[in-house]
């Protein structure tokens, strides 16, 4: 392993090395929160919010720069005493309901919850009836 940091950094054309690299000389090192309860609550809220620059990942999971900042925002807001609902409302105000990884159970969205449940319940009733009607008697 050749330690050639300087070499690569100087060789790196701006088009080659991307934003995550370039962003670093501006951003102060991120402070990792030591508070584990806060960290857990941050993760809870962040895992329900969709990362705008990724595909389907939550901001809790995504390693992208924007997601990290959004997660940081969630952490700060929680620490400042905001409730998870207030934080979600802020992000909905900016990104629309798209930002919620789980649609709110209201209005049209109810369908996505109700349809599978209907199938399970209806199917269970059907299978029970079917088994009753199509089983040989015990005495056989």
């Amino acid at each position: 392993m050749v330690s050639s940091v300087g070499l690569v950094f100087s060789l790196a054309a701006p088009g080659l090395l991307g934003g995550d690299l370039a962003a670093q000389d501006a951003a102060a090192p991120r402070v990792a929160a030591g508070d584990s309860a806060l960290e857990r609550r941050t993760r809870e809220v962040a895992s329900g919010l969709r990362c705008p620059v990724c595909q389907g990942l939550s901001i809790a999971d995504s390693p992208s720069e924007l997601a990290l900042e959004m997660k940081g925002l969630v952490r700060e807001q929680l620490a400042a005493g905001k409730t998870p609902d207030q934080i979600r409302a802020y992000f909905i105000g900016k990104y629309g309901e798209w930002v919620l990884l789980e649609p709110k159970a209201e209005g049209l969205n109810l369908l996505v919850y109700v349809l599978p449940l209907t199938l399970v319940v209806g199917g269970a009733l059907f299978v029970i009836r079917y088994v009753r009607a199509n089983s040989e008697k015990r005495n056989s």
């Binding site: 895992s47 939550s58 629309g96 309901e97 789980e102 649609p103 049209l108």
Partner: peptide, 19 residues
């Protein structure tokens, strides 16, 4: 469902891991 919601309401929703 996201396609359906968009077709009906014109707004995008996400259905992801928590769901």
């Amino acid at each position: 469902f996201p396609l359906f919601a968009e077709a009906v309401r014109g707004e995008k929703v996400s259905v992801g891991e928590p769901f």
